[in-house]
Design a protein around this nucleic acid. Structure first.
Lengths: 337, 337
DNA sequence: AATATTATCGGTAACGTTCTCGCTGATTTT
DNA sequence: AAAATCAGCGAGAACGTTACCGATAATATT
């Protein structure tokens, strides 16, 4: 209805200039304490709200950060966002959310159509099949800071935040071994993703440390879904010598594994141990409950955002890497009895 | 590095005026087909990206919609957001995400601090304890359209999108009754929320239709969490005459109920039936699997966003209400025999 | 042939804010 | 008492875009 009040209204009411009002509202520099109070009072009086677009235009800085990720409908990503939101909110930044549905074309179109004027920095977790990172490189070349988390590309030199995938996997597999399992299989994520490789390496390292043979058929790369967990497990258990334990790249796949094991009448834990990665709330709901490596999702969100805001504030974009530790959660699915 | 290219650059290169360039880029009105093509070519050439802030300032319309909700770390809300995102993306709108953590103070501060210049419309699901809706009324008074979904206030006349809570609850309870359960209890949500009431009314209606007595102690209002589901169920089962079925306001509480029933050695389904609301993926993971009313979360997101964009487009804000049907999903937890 | 119409374009003022100067008048310095 | 300093303020341009209106030339109308 009534157009929003502006800085000019305040100036007119107080019979001072807009420059003074602007300074009073922000810097409080070069402005008398008394006039400043009068400005503040007048602003409150007429319910003044700053126009962020005008500010952004004049200062060449929006107060937005873009967040690009494949999904939000799972525990991990939604928790990361909550962490991001937490620090963004406290620093007065808005989050512009973009979901790619794990489609590289969509990711590309989002990044390219996104006006560079609409955010000060980018927080991204890539698609699983990102053939190229050129689009992100372009953004960085425009001097807009980008911080990657979880699904980080390795071709590009930039700030990254991730859980300790190698050690998490190592711990998971070592836990299996120390509980008496000997033929440990790994149902992995899609190839090409850095953390898929890291977790695989951790798996390998634990096997070799404990002098266990590395059976090639015991590692299957596929998707992240529960369904692919089921399919992988069928393949695994149909082997001449099936494994007696399964380390899944995430809890969804672990749950898929448990489902096929159950369907085949195989006692989980006693006959075949299962361990996941994430600590999705489902892990404690399913029975038997699922052992897993808890990821610090919330912390990853916080750290990523803090890192990004740091880059934005000091205008310098020196890449940093942060690796946050996970935590082994022992439950029933790795209890041999 | 190099400052972003602007409309002026194009004008200078082509030796035409900025007005013509602006028209060529947008309207294609009052501009020759050929010059328009030259402008488009030049824009692509120098990698021109429009500055949204300048546009927003000149047109008094950002291309952003604000989304305010209590949580995102659950299946329902994250799926709604995905639905919102889907239509927003297709129409070129950005989503600014705000999470209140179900805190009324935070909700208030978000709405009040949000510059009205930073979004064209608002999509909100309120806190459970919103004592007032004044802050939203203020936004509406500024002629910014607001659409509520799921958790909608009843004191305020505005557009609303929700699942059919009454009929969903009715169907759930009728399903219990027709499966032979007679003493049906209801562990409800917090008082004051519209859908808590609707689901309670549906529960009542089903009982009275089937001539079952309404026992006051059989309805407990409390939180939404799994823990409150556990607590409520303890209270229920300690009654002199405990219920033989529980209708929970959502799946999390239903799962809580199942946990305490299991802990007490009560056979779910056979002795006590349990049904939830939402169809969280957990419902099919837990064992016995949980019967529930599936909510059309994705559709609710889509519809809310379409409604809002409609309001924004036609500048008229005539409140509309949409009620989307749920669907009964029968699983093991309501199988008596 | 004079006039009216049309298509295409340019000039200029907004939009709300910040920023860089420069100007006053008062205070301090010498 | 003259000069230097300084606090506080204002004028005006800029940020990139759109909107309104007028100008021009070409075409159509009578």
């Amino acid at each position: 209805m009534s157009r929003p009040t502006t800085i000019k209204d305040i100036a007119r009411i107080l019979k001072i200039s807009v420059s003074t009002v602007s300074r009073a509202l922000r810097d409080a520099y070069d402005v008398n304490e008394e006039t400043r109070n009068r400005v503040l009072a007048a602003a409150a009086e007429i319910n003044y709200k700053p126009n962020y677009n005008a500010t952004a235009l004049a200062k060449r800085s929006t107060h937005n950060i873009g967040v690009i990720l494949p999904f939000i409908t799972n525990y991990y990503f939604s928790t990361v966002i909550t962490g991001i939101q937490e620090v963004a909110y406290s620093k007065g930044f808005n989050i512009i959310l973009h979901v790619t549905n794990d489609s590289p074309e969509r990711e590309l179109s989002i990044v390219d159509n996104l006006s560079l004027s609409s955010f000060d920095g980018l927080l991204v977790s890539t698609c699983s099949q990102s053939d190229s990172c050129e689009h992100f490189a372009r953004v960085i070349r425009e001097d807009i800071p980008v911080v990657f988390f979880d699904r980080v590309p390795n071709q590009i030199r930039t700030s990254k935040v991730m859980q300790d995938d190698f050690n998490g996997a190592f711990e998971a597999v070592e836990h299996l071994v120390s509980n008496g399992y000997r033929r440990v299989a790994h149902i992995a994520g899609p190839r090409g993703l850095l953390f898929t490789e890291k977790r695989y390496e951790g798996y390998l390292a634990a096997l070799t440390k404990h002098n266990l043979p590395v059976v090639e058929d015991y590692t299957i790369y596929s998707g992240f879904s529960q369904e692919s967990g089921q399919a992988d497990t069928i393949q695994l258990m149909d082997l001449p010598e099936p494994p007696d334990a399964i380390f899944a790249v995430n809890d969804r796949k672990a749950i898929g594994a448990m489902l096929t094991l159950k369907a085949r009448g195989i006692r989980i834990g006693k006959e075949v141990g299962v361990i996941g990665f994430t600590d999705d709330p489902m892990a404690s709901i399913i029975s038997p409950s699922l052992s897993t490596i808890a990821e610090p999702a919330f912390e990853i969100g916080r750290k990523s955002c803090e890192l990004l805001l740091g880059h934005i504030r000091k205008k310098s974009f020196i890449p940093e890497e942060k690796i946050l530790p996970g935590k082994l959660i022992v439950r029933e699915s790795t209890n041999k009895g």
